[in-house]
Design a binder for these strands. Structure first.
Lengths: 252, 252
DNA sequence: CTTTTTTGAAAGAAAATGATTGTTTTTGAT
DNA sequence: ATCAAAAACAATCATTTTCTTTCAAAAAAG
């Protein structure tokens, strides 16, 4: 990976999380500690970030506006791992749908493929996608406060205009019988269309989402592959799910 | 393959993906490493790109950015004044179109009216609009890098779905005979529709935009009211314009 | 056919990386 | 508060990768 790319990745991660541990950065970039330390030194020299013991934080800018990427406290190493795995499915020239959410946002920086077209309904995804230079298309519609996802009639209609090689979807619940679900029916509808329309559909779920149900079901387990983490406590549950759908469990 | 063809290929590849590894370039062009290196050196000399260890990236706009920010800073007070005046036109229950851009962004925070619905094609506007709690709708479409405006077929179609009481438009040029204009035809098209569809249309222009023309005309002076600043040096020009359209000049 | 330009390959120089060293900072138990 | 263990750090070195320089062959131009 090029120095430039890696440093960009560090900055983007920081913009999302405000602070990042060294281990998170090595994890996310695949580089060694030494390399990350050197990057941090260089970036600090450029005032792009501030080094702190154990990692780095954003520089204390006085007039920095609270961007649309706030409230991202739970951006864990787990999401990064899941994101990186999801990104490995993206191939040169793919057009992909990337759902709103933090899990899906984490995958953007890991996409290595070239000439990728990204379509999204998430404002946070737009920002990440642009930063990494992807051709970016946005669904129209109503901006739902909270998740900052685009929903409604316009969004649905916009979905029909595009053809997706792959769709990457976030979820709030994964359940053996109920399938994938999320609280808001309007958001669920967008996800449902994405799963239906895409050639391949992947649902990203950190371990907190397993064995849970939410109000609105948007797909059955068999409709989309599940990308999640292979934690020791969830081993048994994943085993059970694997009889119902394709599971891609990322090991820490 | 001819030298300029190969260099064109390098530049177009870079334009797509921001950074390119040497191996990608040799693969794409079929030329040897040495040849690509020579091309990169030459293109860097022309400021067409920036060489980085392992490949090349688009030239860092650091050189032009100081100018941009400097310019932006110097017009901030003026933009705020113009924005505040524009915001005074917004009434309770209005549905308004707010164009992408910094001038229009400045008006959001000054809107006092209640139950206002904001429709926009600018990513920066979304952020501001959400922050101040307005019901926010977004046009879909392609995200143009640079202005971060949504353009293209989807954006145009989305415009047709809404009815606007008022439209607030940014511009790059105000000219007595050519009217209002902006560099990008696609952006101009959106502005044009906004002016046509809205019950009332306002164009916001700081004083640097007066007596200038840009490539794409989107409206005649008589089609939209002009909100600008009444500077001492522009007094005469504004007097001249006031015979052609409605001028609302804000005094500092 | 000769001269100039472009190209690709090779060798040494420079840069980046990862591992290892010893030092500094933090942590937490007394 | 003090000390020892643990964690994080900077400095250094060997290895790998990339870069520049150089040169000769191939292609293009005169």
């Amino acid at each position: 990976m090029l120095t430039f790319e890696r440093q960009d990745m560090i900055l983007s991660l920081l913009k999302q999380q405000k602070v990042a541990k060294l281990s998170e950065l090595t994890e996310a970039t695949g580089a060694s500690e030494s390399t990350i330390r050197r990057d941090l030194s260089e970036l600090e020299r450029q005032n792009k970030l501030k080094r702190i013991h154990g990692g780095a934080s954003l520089p204390s800018r006085k007039s920095e506006e609270p961007g649309m990427t706030e409230k991202k406290a739970s951006f864990t190493a787990e999401k990064q791992l899941i994101g990186r795995h999801a990104a490995s499915h993206v191939e040169d020239g793919d057009s992909i749908f990337v759902d709103a959410g933090t899990s899906t946002e984490a995958m953007i920086s890991h996409i290595q493929a070239k000439n990728v077209i990204i379509v999204t309904n998430g404002l946070n995804i737009i920002e990440a996608s642009l930063r990494f230079g992807f051709r970016t298309y946005v669904l129209g519609g109503y901006v739902k406060s909270g998740t900052h996802a685009l929903i409604g009639k316009s969004a649905v209609e916009a979905m029909r205009q595009y053809r997706f090689d792959k769709a990457f979807i976030g979820t709030n619940g994964v359940d053996a019988s109920f399938g994938y679900s999320t609280p808001d029916p309007e958001e669920a509808y967008i996800k449902q269309i994405a799963v239906q329309e895409a050639q391949e559909a992947y649902v990203l779920a950190d371990s907190s989402k397993l064995n849970r149900t939410s109000f609105s079901r948007f797909a059955g387990l068999q409709d989309a592959a599940l990308i999640t983490e292979a934690g020791s406590d969830s081993e048994e549950y994943l085993q059970q799910l694997s009889e119902l759908t394709s599971i891609e469990a990322v090991k820490i």
